[in-house]
Design a protein around this nucleic acid. Structure first.
Lengths: 227, 227
DNA sequence: TCCTGTACCTACTCGCGAGTAAGCCTACTG
DNA sequence: CAGTAGGCTTACTCGCGAGTAGGTACAGGA
């Protein structure tokens, strides 16, 4: 019962540092996503990365540093994905639509990343809760500004300008919650999810109920409406 | 530096079990709220409760059991608060308004309870994440049914009936996020927060931007609009 | 007044997981 | 084909926190 090929993990293949670092980060993201920061153990990260613990420490430092690097990488990916599609030349509605679509596409593609950023951000005691909360706050401010811009363009009454930030917060929450709901309904497309959020944001339930639904600007038909 | 009155915690006053249990639960809710399940220590719960650790174990059992009891109590409070105001006789719009208002009132009153239910529910690895997620799912189903009811009453097109659950999920998320936003803007009233959510839900940004905002049915004016 | 049960305590054990010491192995370099 | 740098490992230490053993003190009944 020994010396067989698959029994013992055996010595890991020698790989250049950059590659191992990526593997460790991937493993750490998966483990943090599944367990949460506190419940995650460095041993498990090492095992998932197919390597021994001291390597993790040698390359990425302490558990807290490792988590920080994970957060930074995943947050960067999300910001890049959204930033790549929101041309400031475009009208607010179109910009919001593209950003929302990019967001859901990202969530669909990098589930663990989303988990680490979203679920682990909540629990306050954790190391980088403040940073993540700050990032979220910036996102809300950005969307709030976009809403305000749209509002001004439409000649909205004064009192409403104070409301855009709160509306943006609600919208961000609605997006997060829809992303969670998506996990339970994996057959939906990112586009359909984005269309749902736009419907809520741009039309409101009061309009939807009267049969008027919002449609994405370029394509012929929103996924939300079959037929 | 001893034998002074305030120096040592001294022996705690003798109290009947029921009272101590309530104190311990209050302390546990506060600690879990602030630290999260994993980072919370039973020692801290004991200190906050003004008591020694073995008492906590004697009365509430293990850490996991203690957490479970906390969750049950706070969830019960929330359910009761909302359930007390949603008369099934009422129209869907009125029912939603009352429920939303009760929700924000609860969050304003029991911050720690809300924290434990909301933030700690997220991190998946934790003991009762499944139960909390289930409760949240039930809430979404309930609101979804309410939306469907409203939709049918308005004679909405067929395709929309499949959308109500997703809309409910978005709405719940929007509510949670607004509750968080509230922490950064504590001067707002529960009523104003509830009015915001109703505006998003019932009118949508598209309507708001045209100056049409939703108003609570009974009172003369929505808090959202001053003047 | 003593006696008993229940509230309460100090002072441990013990396992788990973060972090490390000390060295082994192998792919390039000359 | 020897030398070496850097990839990789085993096998620890050590503190923190869950959970417990074995009591002490106090209120209320005999």
């Amino acid at each position: 019962m020994r010396s067989e090929q698959g029994d013992r993990p055996a010595r890991a293949k020698r790989l250049p540092r950059a590659v191992r670092e990526r593997q460790i980060l991937d493993a750490a993201t998966a483990v943090f996503s599944q367990r949460g920061y506190h419940a995650a153990s460095m041993d498990e990260v090492a095992v998932v990365a197919g390597i021994s613990k001291p390597m993790v420490y040698a390359y990425l430092g302490s558990k807290e540093e490792l988590f920080a690097v994970c957060i930074k990488r995943e947050a960067g990916r999300l910001v890049d994905a959204v930033g790549a599609v929101v041309d400031p030349e475009l009208a607010p509605e179109e910009r919001l639509w593209r950003g929302v679509l990019a967001f859901f596409t990202f969530v669909g593609e990098y589930r663990d990343s989303w988990n680490v950023l979203h679920r682990q951000a909540g629990s306050e005691g954790q190391p980088f809760a403040a940073e993540i909360a700050e990032g979220r706050r910036r996102a809300i401010a950005l969307i709030g500004a976009l809403l305000a811009q749209a509002a001004v363009a439409e000649g909205v009454p004064e009192w409403f300008l104070g409301e855009t930030e709160a509306m943006a917060a609600a919208l961000v929450g609605a997006g997060e919650s829809l992303a969670d709901w998506w996990l339970d309904h994996p057959d939906e497309s990112a586009k359909a999810m984005a269309a749902r959020l736009m419907n809520l944001a741009w039309m409101g339930f009061g309009n939807l109920v009267r049969g008027r639904n919002w449609q994405p600007p370029t394509s012929a038909k929103a996924d939300a409406e079959p037929a």
